[in-house]
Computed example of a mutant assay.
Amino acid sequence: MQLTRTVRQIAGLTPRPVRPAGWWLDGVLLVATAALTLALANGLFLDTDIAVRDWVDSHRPEAAYWTARVFNFLGQGGWLLMPVAGLLAAALAWRSRSVRPALVFAGGFLITYATIGPMKLLLHRGYPHNEDVAHPERLFSDPTEHAYPSGHVANAIVWYGVITLLLAGLLRHLHRPDVSPAVYRTIRVAPPAIVFCTTTYLGFHWITDSIAGFLLGLLLSRLLSRVPWDDLPLPALPNGFDRPAIFNQPAAPVEKPTPVS
């Protein structure tokens, strides 16, 4: 207990608030992810996965297929979500003259690659239409495939959270009116929900892949949201580039008095 207090005193950091508050939901998400993984490893829910796959395969007309394909691009991390977040981070870093926006981007990158990737590599589940193995729905079925959990869904939840955080900071530094909280909620919720549905509907992932991606992505997003980016200790950088940039409200520009003729 004394060590914990000492570490907190040295760090001097206070986690930022999240909704719902407290760590109870994080614990529920972690336990639920572990429980679902354990259940799948023991053969539970596999019939449900197969039933959902077969149903969507038989209810996918061409128009619905192409519509879902287009909307599924909202979950493309490598060439959509990360570039958008990177551009916002660069714009905010330039406007605020601070490196801290880059830390937000790096945090999103590291937390996804340190969790989602290893799970996929360790559990190597086959994809729904893998015909090379007898039972692709099982965990450890194919060491060449990595369906579980859905990276599309988990990445969408994390990266849209990063995007809204950087966007809010950039609007403040541009001295532009902030958008309503409802807009931010829509950005954070609607694209991941669409990716969840389209990824499953297109048969790219088993339904339990998407559920696990949702649980894990929400957990990671809550962890990132707690980070006090402006208070993280940094070495003194030239020109004050270690200054706060994410949450602070910059001073309004001073208007020069108009000369009286």
Score class of each variant (00 low, 15 high):
L88N: 01
F109T: 11
L74E: 13
D57G: 12
F109K: 01
L218M: 10
D231E: 15
M119E: 03
W79P: 02
F204G: 13
W23Q: 14
V7T: 03
T4H: 08
A147M: 10
T67M: 07
H59E: 04
P257G: 04
L88S: 01
P238K: 07
P238F: 07
G213W: 08
K256P: 02
N248K: 09
Y127T: 14
P118L: 00
L122H: 03
Y65F: 10
E62K: 06
I116R: 00
G27K: 12
L30T: 14
Y65A: 11
L25A: 14
S225Q: 14
Y113N: 12
G213A: 04
F247P: 00
T258L: 04
I246W: 05
W94H: 07
P244C: 09
D178F: 07
T67L: 08
D242E: 15
R69D: 12
L30K: 09
D242I: 08
T186M: 05
P235M: 03
D178S: 15
G107N: 03
P17H: 14
H135I: 02
W94R: 03
L218Q: 09
N72A: 12
P259M: 05
T4V: 12
S261G: 08
T186Y: 05
I50R: 10
T112Q: 01
W94K: 00
G12E: 07
A245C: 11
D26C: 15
V104G: 03
T4W: 06
W23H: 14
I10L: 14
V183Y: 08
R188C: 13
F73L: 14
T144M: 09
S221T: 11
P253T: 12
F71Q: 08
Q2S: 05
A190I: 14
V158L: 02
V162L: 06
R185H: 08
T164E: 10
T258I: 06
L40I: 12
L218W: 13
D49A: 06
P233K: 04
P61M: 09
A32Q: 10
T144Q: 11
L232M: 10
L74H: 08
M1H: 09
V7R: 07
L224R: 13
Q76I: 05
T14L: 03
L223T: 13
F196N: 09
A154N: 08
P15S: 01
F204V: 10
Y113K: 05
D57M: 02
G213T: 10
Y113S: 07
V31D: 09
M82L: 15
L167G: 15
P253D: 08
L36F: 07
A63I: 09
H124L: 06
A251G: 12
